[in-house]
Design a binder for these strands. Structure first.
Length: 313
DNA sequence: TTAAATTCCTGTAAGC
DNA sequence: TGCTTACAGGAATTTA
């Protein structure tokens, strides 16, 4: 499933191709994938808009839209090349818990959450339409940005930041774990005030944004911590180890273009490479790479959880 | 207020 | 072989 590293990969791939493009048309074939506003308003809101930036916040893809050139001046299929990609602002959001970006108040955000099986792909018009494609954005260069999602856990939203916040459809997200501003002390404070299992806190998007089942298990293993241990019992030293492990798990996964353990594919339909390198996720019963003991499996916070009884105390 | 349980959804794989 | 059933999980919602 797409977690922070997978979404980061997609966003980085799409950015240079999408920035500067105008959405000429939008077709929805599955209405309820749109969570805000009503589907008709959604289409009205995106058509004719120019893509100003493409960013990520947690597991959310944020596409900033500004009014595009009028219909008369819309370039044809072989229109001008996009401007050189702006160095994306690494983090376009405010402080902890605030969603999501700077920029002008009237700017519109097209928000995409991939859920479990969502895919956002950039294709040319002759690429056959795949089953479960729920939305197609027709771009002014003839290409199409397609949203596909067999299990339909994903969602699309559009609106000004103000409107999205007011709609309550966007959650308050915790800090970005790979942000340099995110310090071990901050993680320690969050853990101290929670009586839930460590794993449950890592999965809580309000505590830390972008971590899902794969990287929660991976980082707990790297930190040698039991997933079921209550968060408020960890020492400062352990919290520092978890902080470091979290960053490492996520950054290595980004370097390897994400984990394709289920149906995850990047913007070009290609699988990532991290699934080959996972330490524990999906390896229940197989030997621990550190001690050789078979990895254990249990259920925490409603999620399958794999860990090593010997290495993770 | 927080934590846990339930729900949504369909493709896949195990079991009979 | 073909059918049924269990399972996968992000996050909103409901319950405790």
């Amino acid at each position: 499933m797409p977690e922070l590293p997978e979404v980061e990969t997609i966003v980085a791939d799409l950015r240079p191709h999408l920035v500067g493009r105008t959405i000429a048309r939008c077709e929805l074939s599955f209405r309820t994938i749109v969570r805000h506003p009503e589907p008709e308003e959604f289409v009205d809101a995106v058509v004719g808009m120019r893509i100003e930036s493409v960013a990520r916040r947690g597991k959310y893809i944020l596409i900033r839209l500004v009014p595009g050139p009028g219909p008369g001046s819309r370039p044809g299929p072989s229109g001008p090349a996009p401007p050189p990609a702006l160095p994306a602002p690494p983090h376009e959001w405010g402080g902890k818990g605030r969603f999501p970006m700077n920029g002008e108040e009237e700017d519109v955000l097209l928000v995409v959450h991939l859920g479990m099986t969502g895919q956002l792909r950039l294709v040319d018009e002759v690429t056959p339409l795949e089953k479960h494609t729920h939305a197609v954005f027709f771009l002014d260069d003839g290409r199409q940005l397609r949203y596909r999602d067999p299990r339909r856990f994903g969602r699309l939203l559009v609106g000004t930041q103000e409107a999205l916040l007011a709609s309550k459809k966007m959650p308050r997200l915790g800090p970005e774990p790979i942000d340099m501003e995110f310090q071990a002390e901050q993680l320690y404070r969050e853990l101290k005030r929670r009586r839930a299992p460590l794993k449950a806190v890592l999965l809580d998007q309000k505590a830390i944004a972008g971590v899902g089942n794969i990287y929660a298990d991976e980082s707990l293993h790297r930190a040698r911590l039991r997933p079921g241990r209550l968060a408020n019992t960890v020492s400062k030293k352990s919290a520092r180890r978890l902080h470091e492990s979290l960053r490492e798990s996520l950054l290595v996964a980004i370097a390897n273009r994400g984990s394709s353990v289920d149906t995850y594919r990047d913007a070009w339909g290609e699988a990532g490479g991290q699934q080959e390198k996972l330490l524990v996720y999906g390896r229940a019963g197989e030997p621990c790479f550190t001690c050789g003991r078979p990895l254990s499996s249990t259920r925490i916070a409603g999620r399958t959880t794999v860990f090593c009884r010997r290495c993770q105390r």
